[in-house]
């Protein structure tokens, strides 16, 4: 009977994945325009948060650099969008983010803890104000117009990026490198002393996580049609993934994804009508999550599950 149950479970996971994939792939055929746009926004936040968690989740280095790669993707789209086909633009954005992240990662290897967070934060602002100065000085205007792409295409591109990200994150997590990343977060010195090339592993993982953020920026730019350095390098794109991941639970695979889905949905529904209340709620939830829920929503769910099963045991025990 145990074997039968096991087999069933093994069949369930791929079956569910296939159903989900079919559902998302065909959705624009029958769903409303609003739902397609909403799901695209949610997928964007899942991409940002999930990518952030690939590196920062296991290693514990708080990166505030997502906005830099997101902005890089947006500007790739703004500069190349008119002359190159969309897939090329997306791939170039991913590659550019990868290379910049490789360089930034190599530069910042010595920075520990809060210094790394401050550096990545400063980097975004440096790029933003430099670009602003450059645009005003040399192109004469602050912003740029981006080629418009229809909503269904944006939706599909975002979901392909998301699927690739989830697959990558899953493979890294399952591999020996996932375990090594975890060991860096737990004790970097000991990890180095048992043969883990910590600098290389940190840099490459940081760069891989940047690919998806850059690609997401490139496709989102086509929805906004007009971008300037303030829009593209908005530090909120760095804060949001951190906060969403913490809210969902950093240490677990599903945590950051869950956190992003919940908050992206709340944002889409609340921000136009009650922007200040939404951000206020955001702040309160963040404080509560940091102080009371070290493992986020997923951690909370696990505690509740444990309590319920204990209670059930207590009942059957009687």
């Amino acid at each position: 009977m145990d074997i039968a149950r096991l087999d069933l479970r093994k069949m369930w996971t791929p079956a569910l994945l296939l159903i989900a994939l079919a559902l998302f792939a065909t959705l624009p055929l029958y769903a409303s325009r609003y739902l397609v746009i909403l799901l695209t926004s949610i997928a964007m936040y899942v991409v940002l948060t999930g990518s952030w968690a690939i590196f920062s989740g296991p290693t514990g280095y708080i990166s505030l650099a997502p906005a830099a790669f997101f902005g890089l993707g947006i500007y790739t789209s703004a500069v190349l969008g008119r002359t190159s086909p969309l897939p090329a633009v997306i791939l170039v954005a991913g590659l550019a983010s990868f290379l910049v992240a490789l360089f930034v990662g190599a530069l910042t290897l010595r920075l520990k803890g809060i210094y790394f967070a401050m550096f990545t934060f400063g980097l975004v602002e440096l790029i933003k104000y430099f670009l602003l100065w450059y645009e005003v000085e040399f192109t004469g205007t602050r912003g740029r117009f981006v080629v418009v792409v229809d909503n269904t295409t944006i939706y599909y591109v975002m979901f392909i990026i998301l699927a690739t990200l989830l697959l990558t994150a899953y493979l890294i997590r399952r591999s020996r490198f996932g375990m090594a990343l975890q060991s860096i977060g737990e004790c970097e010195e000991a990890a180095a002393h048992i043969g883990v090339n910590v600098n290389l592993l940190k840099t490459v993982t940081f760069a891989i996580s940047a690919i998806f953020i850059g690609m997401a920026g490139a496709i989102m730019a086509t929805r906004w049609t007009y971008v300037d350095p303030y829009i593209a390098f908005n530090p909120l794109f760095s804060f949001m993934p951190v906060l969403m991941a913490i809210f969902g639970g950093i240490g677990r695979f599903g945590g950051p994804i869950l956190g992003a889905v919940v908050f992206a949905y709340l944002e889409e529904t609340l921000i136009t009508r009650f922007p200040y209340y939404y951000m206020l709620l955001f702040g309160i939830v963040l404080i509560i999550a940091v102080v009371y829920l070290p493992n986020g929503l997923v951690g909370l769910a696990q505690i509740l599950q444990k309590r319920i099963s204990e209670r059930r045991h207590a009942h059957t025990g009687r």
């Binding site: 090594a180 990890a191 048992i194 043969g195």
Partner: peptide
């Protein structure tokens, strides 16, 4: 380490949240 020189630490430096087995497995893998 890869050349064949390993060490332990004066103040213990295990990977605290990882299971005992994975602590050792990491050494064997890397």
């Amino acid at each position: 380490c890869k050349m064949g020189l390993a060490r332990t630490f004066q103040s213990v430096k295990v990977f605290p949240n990882m299971p005992v087995f994975e602590n050792v497995l990491l050494g064997a893998l890397f």
